[in-house]
Amino acid sequence: MADVLEAVKVSRSFDVSKPWLQRMLSRSGRRSLRAVDEVSFSIPKGTTLSLVGESGCGKSTVARLAVGLYPPSSGDIRFEGQSLSSARAQPALRRRMNMIFQDPYASLNPRWRVQDIVAEPLRAFGMLRGSAVGDRVGQLLSQVGLSPADGAKYPHEFSGGQRQRISIARALSSEPDFLVCDEPTSALDVSVQAQILNLMRELQTRLGLTYLFISHNLSVIRHMSDRLGVMYLGRIVEHGPAEAIFTEPRHPYTRLLLDAIPDLDAAGGVGRVRAGVGGEVPSPIAPPPGCTFHPRCPLANDRCRVERPDYTQAGPVEVACHAVEEGRG
């Protein structure tokens, strides 16, 4: 199957320096934060690649890179083989990708009617005119489980789940092939989350959509993904078929994450005895040398503290870990 999106050693840095004047006065230099560090992946048509990680791991930056909101600092992102920087210049290609955001209360302009929100991409790309726009909006609203009459209302008249449906209708209006979903359900309650996840999978099957799905919630990830990338401090540390990673996590960080999820099965039993992994994510402005996970890693040795691990093939999965490579895992 052809890849819809491919990222090749993509990095993105942000300038986090103080303002120019303060910098001159205190004679300090520029500082930059490497949010995404040589990330590579590809997403075959009609499948879902998920990225999981904790806050500051760079997953949302990857999401924004993938729709061209930021240009990469180095590396290349290709949409159907075409570099995104040139693809973004062509409305015909831009039309084919869109994004769903995390917070349904912030992602819809409160001063716009729903019909105008949903029709915005249609109008921006000049796809339809006049009454055809209204018909298409009605059709899109029905497709996501709302009524065409809802178009005349304002966002504040809807619940969080309904707003996320509006967001999805907007994302689908320009008939895209590829959707980036940045934590689409983490602001929703569980019963509503199930509705939205079901809807997204239905739409994927029906419309042949390709998803890049970002989340910190492993249960949601497992439900949605074909392939999975686990991110830590800007790098993908483990990458492969989702089921393979869930059944046999190899990277110590993946194991820590899976172990940390509070589990329904624990109910009534004795509290699970957790692996003694503590610590917190270090600042991405000054990441640790070597493997960035080594300060929290139970398997870390001297090599991990100085040498940055490359990817090792372990079964169907790629892992960036010296311990796995050396068979210490």
């Binding site: 909101l69 409305p91 955001f101 912030a106 992602s107 790309f125 907007r170």
Partner: peptide
């Protein structure tokens, strides 16, 4: 805000 990002995504 995300609604501004959404507008930027479609260019």
């Amino acid at each position: 805000r995300d609604y501004v990002l959404a507008a930027r995504v479609i260019g």
